[in-house]
Design a protein around this nucleic acid. Structure first.
Lengths: 341, 341
DNA sequence: GCGGACGTTGAATCTCAAC
DNA sequence: AGTTGAGATTCAACGTCCG
């Protein structure tokens, strides 16, 4: 299926492949109830070599489908994630982060023989070293109460009303992922209108969240039963309003304003003096360069020289006087940007 | 060196191999200061293939040294851990858990281009599928406020007084690990008298903690400078009293607070004496239990026994001495809570 | 002696458009 | 494909200094 799609056509791939759990026999809880394990035929592989071969095949197909600036997320556990990670690197992907999903309510280890398996690992990778990729830094920072999002995410597992059930009331899929996880992945690494591919679609969590968030999606799923559940589920989803999909953006995304425009527009007069926090002065020239202390150049260059620093943001470094108050020149840039809208 | 040691002779291997970081160029903080990167020659490999070859060699040598019931821990980051994990599985080791060290104070991502790299991954594996291994379940549970220890551990990075400095006041090793991490590994997967091998000894954190905890150790380190620091460091270590090394082996009531973390973090030494308001004393043990007046148990249990009361808040009941002052242990809990936010 | 201000630092694969 | 230059970008823990 993947090989029948056009190359360089998707912005994001989210993949939740079989984990190759290699479970032996049944597991019972201390109260003697039996644990409903993942023993489906699609999780059976004869050897690590067979699993590796499967992994390398789909990763190769996935990479062909990715746009040059696209990215992939893969989720797994210790059973498979090391093989997946090595295969990703070998296929030419460039790992950007590994992210730990720390489950707030994991299943305990009933026998007391190991640690509670309380997390799963996701790998986030771009198509190649040096490739561009989408990262909505400010939006994720906003999701995290104003501090930079970390590589460990604390989220509950999927249960309650979100957990899809079949006609018998049993869970429709053994490893349904929480929507909160996909929400963070999709908000963080796509923009509205982007195309998201999930090659192990299952009951369609990726598609459901993509649709809610105004992203297009492609889902591939081999099992009829899962596909039917996914189709019904996604048909019931109503996308959020367009206005709700706008997220915080970084300053980098804002239009560039040359300092010279401030002079051209008469916001600063040639000959006017700017000052830094230490009270050092520089004179504005008609072409938008500064002169101060025998140094000539852009607002950034003169600031960097004065500080002996490798670089300097002149917009926040330099100040001017208006009605007795000292104001950073960045407020003038804000005015121009407001005018431009 | 490893191949010169007798086979099947060590109980535990802790390995902190080079991560193969592949850094390009310098990185500056927003305040223009330069990040002191890990650019040491020992972390340079020409390719993934070279790193894999190195990894498979030492993992093979390590497996020969392990007793049949021994275990290995390896720590790494996304740069190398997937290759290490796959090589472990290919070499015949059997992964028991992957454990995430969630750093309470990681270095941020200064350019806002990725997630804060806030964790490292450890892999815990036995020598082969079905092999026995040591797991002090109750001791770890006691260290974790009476609930089963999870696969994610929140611990601070190594800094402050614990961080070893050279004669210039610079850090003696760029990647020194915190003792709290080794404390948990060694208490959890060895018994007193066991032999611990660290084939990438560095400045000897593994040896220091092993010695404190009454385990024997072997350290291998190529760099003279690190070895010298390690030798001096370990010579200054005083092992805890034998009685403090006894850990819980039977079920007991659950304490409501993680007193054991005070020991792991070195805020209280195993063997240190606590006192109540009447001047009665109790000794702290390595797993966070107390022993005093013939009574053993949690801080709450021992307090309750001494008072003949049905219950007791050990946090306010017990006190310790610092610089001549008697302070309730609750102040240490406050510090940890502040760290964990 | 205490508290607040300020400076330093930690395993980091850390920019990007225009020329 | 390489170079240039604008200009965007950090969190928690410690240690020191000063009032």
């Amino acid at each position: 299926m993947m090989n029948s799609l056009p190359e360089c056509s998707v912005d994001l791939i989210f993949a939740d492949p079989p984990y190759n759990l290699q479970l032996r026999g049944d597991l019972h809880r201390p109260d003697n109830s039996k644990v409903d394990a993942v023993d489906d035929h699609w999780d059976q592989f004869n050897s690590f070599a067979a699993y590796d071969s499967f992994t390398r095949d789909w990763l190769k197909a996935a990479r062909r489908l990715l746009k040059p600036d696209g990215a992939i997320w893969v989720i797994g556990s210790y059973h498979n994630i090391f093989r997946v990670g090595a295969a990703l690197q070998d296929a030419g992907y460039w790992i950007l982060n590994d992210v730990v999903w720390r489950k707030s309510n994991p299943m305990p280890n009933f026998r007391g023989k190991r640690f509670t398996n309380a997390h799963e690992t996701m790998i986030w990778a771009s198509k190649a070293e040096g490739a561009k990729y989408t990262f909505n830094y400010e939006a994720l920072k906003a999701l995290n109460e104003g501090v930079q999002m970390r590589s460990d995410w604390v989220l509950p597992i999927c249960n309650g009303g979100e957990r899809l059930k079949d006609d018998n009331g049993d869970k429709a899929h053994p490893t349904q992922k929480p929507q909160s996880l996909l929400h963070r992945v999709i908000v963080g690494s796509t923009n509205p209108g982007d195309v998201v591919l999930d090659p192990f679609f299952g009951t369609g969590t990726t598609g459901a969240v993509a649709k809610m968030l105004g992203r297009d999606f492609i889902g591939i799923e081999r099992e009829d039963a899962y596909r039917k559940v996914a189709e019904k589920r996604i048909a019931d989803i109503r996308p959020y309003d367009n206005s709700a999909l706008q997220v915080s953006t970084s300053k980098r995304a804002e239009p560039r304003v040359p300092f010279g425009q401030l002079v051209e527009r008469g916001m600063l007069r040639p000959g006017e003096m700017l000052m830094n926090a230490r009270g050092q002065m520089a004179k504005v020239r008609a072409d938008g360069t500064l002169v101060g202390d025998g140094i000539t150049g852009s607002i950034h260059q003169v600031g960097a020289k004065l500080e002996g620093a490798p670089s300097c943001n002149g917009w926040t470094y330099w100040h001017f006087k208006r009605e007795g108050k000292v104001v950073p020149i960045d407020v003038l840039r804000q005015q121009i940007r407001a005018d431009m809208q």
